[in-house]
Design a protein around this nucleic acid. Structure first.
Lengths: 223, 223
DNA sequence: GTCTATACCCTGATAGAC
DNA sequence: GTCTATCAGGGTATAGAC
């Protein structure tokens, strides 16, 4: 209902981008204040510490996952398996639109702070679970297109692992090649799973394949 | 030929562990000096800056990849595909033996510094390539056990992505469950690929499977 | 809620004797 | 090669007026 961005929101969004770009420890509170046009007094009115601000950023990330990623993926296609790849395509576009300078909002804090900031670690673990559950729901919706013996939760964890690993590699190489290679192999895996499920059902499978085109343009900067 | 650890080596190993645990930016030079029992003057005799030290750590990582991971994986089993999983098993044991407090020596710096430290980014990209090439070599050695149309390089990139993503998730959850889930699905993928390759060869496949037991105990701390 | 001013500490790095 | 002493700057966070 806020007609314009509040100071608190501006701090969260500014901090988010800086954290995603250069990490938490390397980002000074001063830099956040300068870029947000906010003074120290206001900052500590809303947040008790820099870590508290990061936790608020992670809270905002939870909302963002639904609004910017899973919602659009659902809107992009009815096909549950294509929805999984629409999610991955979001990260692909995110990487290029920021020229590989921003990392994953979950993976970055997870890699940097899991050992030293218990509250951050726990919060990130929660985000990973939300992400995994959302993908798992797509996989469950795929029903018997996947073999019955495949654990949908485990498969969702693998999708998440591929995404995180692909993003890290793409940023280090400044190239989509490793991302596309990894996701391409994931696609092959799904094709084989579908093939096996079809085979098991002893049905030749007709025109199941018409593979959607991926989600529309979405951007975490476009909050 | 150094009979005992030199000051330079001690700095590198001490810094490595601190960087892996708490990240680069969060690790002060002073903390490294204290734990290594070295004074500031000696440090700047060997290294021109903190970043220079990190680059030396990454150089050491390259050696370590061969000595601690790929060498042992080759020694553990003759089966090229099992060698891939022996490599992944190394990371599994690494995670538990350090109680999820240490991150991946490549993935950590990649996630934290790819955008802000060009030299680090380039060096990490080189390490990723070395890792990928080593796995690709195993996959090439697997010959026609994998379908001919499968790009061995792309498959190796996917293995790397799964490893990095699985390590990040495991650290955030402080649990092997997400790691095992992701690697378990990767195993299923390989099984399907082998099944398909066998099918294509129109050979029923006999006793190809006798799956090795994984590498011996190895530990990056045991340098 | 926002401002200015500042406390206080730790940072990476250097100087120069030994 | 290693030591002690130290610099200059930035770090997070606070105090108290408005």
């Amino acid at each position: 209902m806020a007609r314009t961005t509040t100071t608190r929101e501006r701090l969260i969004r500014t901090a988010a981008e800086l954290f995603w770009r250069q990490g938490y420890a390397a980002t000074g509170v001063t830099a956040i204040l300068r870029r947000a046009g906010v003074t120290s007094g206001s900052f500590y009115h809303f947040f008790s510490s820099k870590e508290d601000l990061l936790l608020a950023v992670l809270d905002a990330t939870e909302e963002m996952l639904q609004v910017e990623i899973f919602g659009p993926a659902e809107a992009a296609t009815e096909d549950p398996i294509e929805r999984v790849f629409a999610v991955l395509d979001f990260y692909r576009r995110y990487l290029v639109s920021h020229r590989f300078e921003l990392g994953c909002p979950m993976g970055g804090p997870a890699a940097e702070l899991s050992a030293s900031r218990p509250r951050v670690r726990a919060r990130v673990a929660g985000l990973f679970k939300i992400w995994k559950d959302a993908v798992e729901a797509f996989l469950v919706a795929a029903g018997d297109r996947l073999p019955g013996e495949v654990d949908r939760g485990a498969l969702a964890e693998m999708v998440l692992a591929v995404m995180e690993g692909a993003v890290i590699q793409a940023r280090a190489r400044r190239s989509l090649a490793p991302f596309d290679a990894a996701v391409g192999q994931l696609r092959r895996f799904f094709d084989l799973l579908e093939d096996r499920a079809g085979r098991a059902a002893e049905v030749p499978v007709s025109a199941i394949m018409e593979r959607g085109g991926g989600a529309e343009s979405a951007d975490w900067r476009a909050w």
